[in-house]
Simulated assay, not measured.
Amino acid sequence: MPSPTPTPASTSASLAPIPTPHPPKADEPHLQAIIPALWVAFSDSAAGSSSGSSSSRAHEDGFTHIVEITYSTGSPHALGPGSIERRWDAAHQAQRLRLVLPAQPQALAPAAGRAALALTDGQLRAARDFVGECLPPDLAAVPEQTAVRVLVTVPPGRPTDAMCVVGCYLGFVAERGVEEILRFIDEEDGVLSVWKGEVSGEEVERVEEIARSWSWLRAAAAAAAAAAGK
């Protein structure tokens, strides 16, 4: 089945409703733009393998930076839960940040509810700075961004982790409240419902604290500004 057409979200006025004849399925990529340079998607595989085939990673093509949130495989030689790995992905010509979650849980019945945020504070902070480094405020505000395109991928059924990364980054660079940012996204007609309303109040508070915490990016910017003022 072909991947759905990516749908950018408006950063100002609301978009007209987008017809969706079939509800989103958790095992489809669902590429979705949050701002022109920042996208989210479900990975094609829930497994934590870093050696996915080119076809299973086709939705990653064209992105310069990828935040890959993935399950631990449990293999003795694999990265364990809570791990953070940044590397150059030669196959996609992109910088890749891998954030490893605990091993994939047993499939839950629909009545069991959503999957809660599983990223650690350190992983959220690493994702915030990874995206913030390549997509600073001046680039994030550009309406037509092509030089830098960032994709956040999560295993099927885990939109909360992706939206927490998005909220943390946008709260950091825009210096706005995470709750306000996520509410704005929830109200956008151009955003698929699968990405909306997935972050609890407690999770918002946790992400807000991380978005406001110290970052080497701000320290470097302050040092550069001080040097320029001399």
Rank of each mutant, 00 (worst) to 15 (best):
A220W: 14
A47V: 10
E68K: 06
A228H: 00
E60L: 07
P136V: 02
T146P: 02
P8L: 13
S10N: 08
E133A: 10
G171V: 05
L135Y: 00
Y71H: 15
K25D: 14
L119G: 07
W214A: 11
R114Q: 03
L119Y: 10
T153S: 01
L79S: 06
S53A: 15
I185E: 00
T11S: 07
A220F: 13
S215G: 00
S200A: 01
A116C: 03
G177N: 11
L101A: 04
I66H: 04
S200T: 01
S54R: 12
G52F: 15
A115L: 08
A126N: 08
R86L: 13
V40W: 11
T70K: 13
A9H: 03
G113S: 01
E28S: 12
R218S: 00
A91H: 07
S193F: 15
E175Y: 07
A118G: 03
V178A: 06
K25V: 14
R218G: 01
G48A: 15
F130V: 02
R212Y: 07
P17C: 03
A47C: 07
R149M: 00
P8D: 08
S54E: 14
S193D: 14
S10H: 12
G190L: 08
P110I: 09
G74T: 01
T160M: 00
A16N: 11
P155K: 11
L117C: 02
E85Q: 09
L79K: 13
S3L: 02
V194L: 15
L217R: 09
P76W: 13
R114M: 03
S49H: 12
S193C: 13
Q93T: 09
K196G: 02
P81Q: 02
V40Y: 09
P143Y: 06
E203P: 10
A58W: 07
G74F: 06
S51T: 10
A224G: 01
T11N: 08
S3N: 09
M163K: 04
A78P: 01
A41D: 01
F184R: 15
T20N: 03
A227W: 00
S213T: 04
A46P: 07
P4F: 12
M163Y: 04
E187N: 14
S55Q: 10
I35T: 04
R87S: 14
D61R: 05
I66L: 02
D61S: 05
E180M: 11
R183D: 08
M163H: 05
G171A: 04
T160C: 12
T64A: 05
R87K: 14
D44R: 04
A90I: 12
R125H: 14
S10T: 10
G201Q: 09
F63P: 07
A37K: 04
R206K: 10
G190Q: 01
T73S: 11
Q123P: 08
P8K: 11
D189Y: 15
